[in-house]
């Protein structure tokens, strides 16, 4: 999988999460795991993909270009973010990397609000690099005006303010044989999330890759609906 280039002349880059170790680990996980795991619905040629929290669009763009990873099927990607600048930059990143405009669609949407699916389709693949850093109220690491940017990493006091509601509800968006790939850090207590949040909502989770990046230990987890996951 080619790593997409983020255009630097958009005037948006300062306002959107810049791809970092977490983004690259998630790309590596997708590259390694998709080919062997993705069965999807073999009778259909279009694969419905959803990225929640698309930021610069680096991951959505990589997937929109990754027919090979999907066994030749054509991806149709919806990219969601709460930051309008991220939605705009995602479309520009797609263009800059020659993604067909029919394959990538950005929508402003809050990923926590999916207890009822706003789309008419369910998704074969859902990808999420969430805001996961534990940040105490008032403990603002960067410039105070950059509220939208802070939302890129701010996971609330325990780091799970986005992750918990998202992981509880995301099964409404996922096809019965769909796959969810999610990046987590040790701060989020992945084992707890798998056991206490995913499982009660019908999702099995397994770790597919991990890496130490500075003081963080990052991992990517794959979730599938129970009863349908392959061994």
């Amino acid at each position: 999988m080619e790593t997409p280039i983020i255009p630097s002349d958009t005037g948006l880059n300062e306002l959107v999460y810049e791809p970092a170790e977490d983004s690259f680990l998630l790309l590596d996980a997708l590259e390694q795991d998709l080919v062997k795991s993705f069965q999807g619905n073999l009778s259909e040629d279009v694969v419905n993909v959803l990225e929640v929290g698309c930021g610069s669009g680096i991951i959505s763009t990589a997937i929109a270009k990754s027919e090979k990873l999907l066994n030749g099927r054509l991806p149709c990607v919806f990219a969601l973010d709460v930051n309008p600048n991220a939605c705009l930059l995602t479309e520009k990143t797609g263009e800059a990397n020659q993604v067909a405009t029919s394959s990538l669609h950005a929508v402003l949407f809050d990923g926590r609000h999916c207890s009822r699916n706003p789309f008419r389709v369910q998704f074969d693949i859902i990808i999420c690099n969430p805001p996961y850093v534990p940040i105490l109220p008032g403990e603002n690491t960067e410039d105070e005006n950059s509220g939208l940017l802070q939302q890129s990493w701010d996971g609330g006091p325990d780091g799970n303010r986005f992750i918990c509601p998202f992981l509880s509800n995301v099964h409404h968006l996922l096809n019965d044989d769909g796959l969810l790939y999610m990046l987590l850090s040790t701060w989020n207590d992945p084992e707890m999330l798998v056991k206490d949040v995913a499982l009660p909502n019908g999702l099995n989770g397994v770790e597919v890759i991990k890496r130490t990046a500075g003081r963080e230990r990052l991992s990517v987890w794959k979730f599938q609906k129970i009863g349908l996951s392959s061994v």
Binding site: F78, S102, H105, V107, H113, C114, S115, R116, N117, P118, F119, R120, V121
Partner: peptide
Amino acid sequence: FTHNMLTSKM
């Protein structure tokens, strides 16, 4: 296309 896929069901 996006309009065709979106609802207000949330």
